[in-house]
Design a protein around this nucleic acid. Structure first.
Lengths: 413, 413
DNA sequence: CTACTTAGTTTAGCCAGTCAACAAAGTGAG
DNA sequence: CTCACTTTGTTGACTGGCTAAACTAAGTAG
């Protein structure tokens, strides 16, 4: 309510070109889906089928036609037609030319209407807010950064979102705010970084922009970004390395948040019991974070605001190299037990870690596979993909209540 | 095919009193549910609603009536009536008197038809097979033990099952065979203990008794037994201590089996890095199992065949006490990281561990809470409940494909 | 005895599927 | 070029499973 006077100074803008087709349809769509969601078990089959069809159109690598939808869903061609008709009426799908003949009539190709709708993403950091508009193909069509001096206020976040969405309101399908800290059910339970506690942020944003809003933790958001191409049911363990260490588990396209919403908080679990006891900032010693956080490995010069280039510079010193070996060993300990317990498809090391380069990853893999426990298969470990837009995860999280995980938001597929 | 000549000698029998009502209905039920399962998304709503109603009747502590079902499901009273009518026709539910008036007409109470149907459970051990018939209230109405000398044969298991079910065929709803080793999708992938590999056991049993059969791992079966009163969505970590160490994660009423079906195989993960390196039978050293298995703590005299009394005798020696402290410390290390990652509702120490008594559990809790990691809440740790029949987990696993997890099989509720 | 409350059934109608017939638009053989 | 055949997609009659609303049944309270 006060902070934005000084804040508006640091505003950076980007391109803004979005088709204005289907302006009036949004409210229809939302009303329809909202109603169906209520009835859930009863008439919700229609919704389920619509989303299934939508998902096929978005995900199938081969061109999708009404006939393909009928075959892959097991529904009648009549039903497939009716589903597609509704999706087209909703503005979510468009016909794009005709496919080659396969011995009969040429089919009509279907594609997601990429720019008919938008998702709002706001990433709240300690001293800045990044806002972005993402279209249904996952492309960032607009983004702004707002530097905030002296304490982050909820009102500043709302204003930033409102400023970016101005004029696009009818196209906005959903919103997601990413914050550091513990979140649950649209509420910021506690964010030490922001100094917030029990803020019902989703409700506030929902009120402000008139579209369903969600709130997600930064580590969880990153895990969702890395799970963009999730085959359903695949379990993925994503570890975030930054000033701290956190993790998240995705099961298919959804997060496992645990009984109290604190699943993945492994930073201050003790993994080092022998030799020099590493003192941690939390007061304990031997914590995973005290060995494996970027700050522990690269020194206090490291902050989460650094770019990849500066980070890799820090990582090139001899001292850093040695600390990285120690960090890798500590992380490997945590990963061995975690992967034996969960048996995940893969382990992703994300956050700022990719800037550490192949050496750290190699060391980590070596350490991880050093004790090949009988009965367990070593799980592939890879870095997070920095080429993925960080807005993808939050955007998918935002869409979940509206469209399930029908849209992967990945353009190249 | 050969072994049962000497085997039939050691047969022990128990009571056998089951109502023979509704003999002819079974095939109808199975056919109906099988058909619905095929159509799944399409006409499966009916099935879903039938199971939901069945679940309410089984689980709700207060007496359930048609009106209650209507209220709790959100369906119309008309639909609730029709669902109940069908459940009664199927023989799964019975009317039991009338409830008190709450200001109007007295309602008709509904209850599960406890003994109309039966589930067959077979527990295959290295030198014996336990078979049991469990009714829909979870009561064991018949059980036998067959001692097997010289190598366990698949045919012996089938014969044992057939021998117990003889005469009850029309009432048998489903079957489950519990085996030690790795299982997946009805196949015994590998069982070192039995010397089996790639045995399609579910199919074989299904053929033999004409009812859907499943195959489950012993640790998983135990975890399901401990999760009998699972609130939906609750995550539970169950650790089995026996000659080896294993774990299982239940999410609501279902198991998390991981990407390759090996989730929970934490026995040979290294947790001890300092001091005396504990040599493990697997060839590595510092494994969890080398410190925390019952054999490691109680000495080679321990076997999984021992009863609780003999086990606790072994545990009372001074040497065992000291080893138990060491084992508890090792297990605590594994539990700290596991619980931080999963944030489960509770941790259950099962297998033969309850025989170790309160001292071991107390030590374990103390060790576990010794490093209270910031941001994580200590998770309650308890022993498995020996009073629960070991057939409950397998019976629920058997029912899953037929009735979902509608029936908790717990009589006292 | 009457008004009101709660339980449960019956009847008509609707929604979202299926099935089957058909129109539309292509291919390839003669 | 024509005709038989294939594949795509639409249309209309039918069906299952729900809702809504009227009704019956059986109780309580004034």
């Amino acid at each position: 309510m006060q902070a934005q006077a000084s804040a508006t100074a640091g505003t950076t803008e980007e391109t803004m070109t979005v088709s204005t087709a289907g302006l009036q349809r949004k409210s229809d769509l939302l009303r329809r889906f909202a109603r169906n969601a209520q009835f859930e078990a009863q008439t919700g089959i229609r919704r389920e089928h619509l989303l299934k069809a939508l998902g096929l159109i978005a995900r199938e690598p081969a061109p999708v036609t009404r006939a393909v939808i009928a075959r892959l869903t097991g529904l009648t061609s009549a039903t497939a037609s009716s589903l597609v008709a509704e999706l087209i009426a909703l503005g979510l799908v468009v016909e794009t030319g005709r496919a080659e003949s396969t011995g009969g009539k040429r089919a009509t190709r279907l594609e997601i209407a990429r720019d008919a709708y938008l998702v709002v993403v706001a990433v709240v950091r300690t001293r800045a807010i990044d806002t972005a508009l993402v279209d249904l193909a996952g492309r960032t069509v607009a983004s702004r950064r707002l530097d905030v001096a002296g304490g982050m206020e909820v009102a500043t976040v709302v204003d930033a979102i409102r400023a970016l969405t101005e004029g696009f309101e009818p196209q906005v399908l959903a919103a997601c705010v990413q914050v550091p800290g513990v979140t649950a059910g649209g509420v910021v339970v506690e964010s030490v970084q922001l100094g917030w506690r029990g803020v019902p942020l989703a409700g506030i944003v929902e009120e402000a922009i008139g579209a369903p809003a969600s709130v997600v933790n930064d580590v969880d958001a990153e895990a969702l970004t890395e799970a963009v191409d999730a085959d359903d049911g695949a379990i993925r363990l994503v570890v975030h390395l930054g000033e701290g260490v956190g993790a998240a588990i995705t099961n298919g396209g959804t997060l496992m948040s645990g009984a109290t919403g604190r699943a993945g908080e492994i930073g201050h679990v003790r993994v080092i019991y022998e030799g020099e006891r590493t003192r941690c900032r939390c007061g304990l010693s031997g914590c995973l974070e005290s060995a494996t956080s970027m700050s522990a490995m690269l020194g206090d010069a490291y902050t989460d605001e650094l770019d990849d280039h500066d980070t890799s510079l820090l990582a090139s010193t001899a001292e850093a190299r040695e600390r990285m070996g120690f960090g890798a060993r500590a992380l490997a300990r945590a990963l061995r037990i975690s992967s034996a317990l969960l048996d995940p498809e893969e382990i992703v090391i994300a956050g700022a870690a990719p800037a550490l380069g192949p050496h750290f990853l190699g060391t980590l893999r070596d350490e991880y596979e050093m004790y090949p426990a009988k009965g367990t298969t070593p799980v592939p470990i890879r870095y997070g993909r920095p080429e993925l837009s960080e807005y993808l995860g939050p955007a998918r999280f935002a869409l979940a209540p509206v469209l399930g995980d029908a849209l992967p938001l990945t353009p190249a597929r």
